[in-house]
């Protein structure tokens, strides 16, 4: 297989492959930032438009715009007045801040919101709207001093934004699930899982502990349930991850 496209296509397909292999939030973020840097973006905010009663700050998936800027943005409720976001009422296709500045007659207050990005060196940016399967809308929005916003770059960034958004939300949902407190194992279950971890069958464990095999099986089944595992292999992985047993 030989690659036929230009640098934009090549980089983007490489990026997609790299990000598909990552599940850790901490690993995903630098890969995204590094890719955006190639296009001349220094900052990115990836967030979902908050639903009624929800706060913007709770629906940010990745952000490295300065905290003061984000605080002020949230405090002044710019999310409602920002002309860059208002554009979402007209289109779900990607657009740049420059498209809005040039294409629309902006009020002074609206221009101010865009211009405040200059405080941290962001003169232009791209907004990539993403409609989620639940119907909610998310934005992937990188910005920088003089980013590449050529048609090919925009096409590449649309793909990069979509994959980044889904990788980030997947990783965060996964982490949340793992943080859910599990019911701790009993000492006996822990002891038995320790034997399971080194590959003993229920029958062997029964022999070692001088108890019946049905008792062992029932302990293992209880442990599996507590560890949210269908199979014993995964139960062992979970038990190690949650610190119930060690190797």
């Amino acid at each position: 297989m030989s690659f036929m496209g230009d640098e934009y296509g090549k980089r983007t397909l490489d990026f997609v492959q790299r990000i598909q292999g990552l599940t850790n939030y901490e690993e995903i973020c630098p890969v995204i930032m590094q890719e955006l840097a190639w296009f001349g973006f220094s900052c990115v905010t990836s967030f979902s438009i908050p639903g009624p009663g929800c706060h913007l700050k709770d629906s940010i998936w990745l952000n490295n715009r300065p905290a003061e800027y984000v605080d002020r943005y949230a405090e002044k409720n710019y999310v409602i007045h920002d002309p860059v976001l208002k554009e979402l009422r007209r289109t779900m296709n990607p657009y740049s801040w420059g498209d809005i500045r040039e294409g629309r007659d902006l009020k002074k207050s609206e221009r101010t919101i865009i211009d405040e990005g200059r405080e941290f060196g962001a003169y232009d940016g791209l907004v990539i709207p993403i409609v989620n399967l639940t119907g909610s809308i998310s934005l992937f929005s990188p910005c920088g001093r003089d980013p590449d916003l050529s048609p090919r770059a925009r096409a590449a960034l649309e793909v990069i934004g979509i994959y980044s958004h889904h990788a980030l939300t997947r990783a965060l949902v996964r982490r949340q699930r793992e943080e859910v407190v599990h019911t701790p194992l009993t000492p006996r279950e822990r002891e038995i899982m320790q034997w399971v971890a080194i590959g003993k069958t229920d029958e062997e464990i029964a022999g070692i502990l001088s108890i019946s095999m049905t008792t062992v099986t029932s302990h293992v089944e209880n442990a599996k349930q507590k560890l949210d595992a269908f199979r014993r292999t995964y139960a062992v992985v979970q038990a190690i991850r949650l610190g119930e047993i060690s190797l």
């Binding site: 496209g5 983007t12 397909l13 649309e158 793909v159 889904h166």
Partner: peptide, 8 residues
């Protein structure tokens, strides 16, 4: 996540 783009 297995969705593989073939191009831009």
């Amino acid at each position: 996540q297995q969705t593989m783009p073939l191009g831009l």
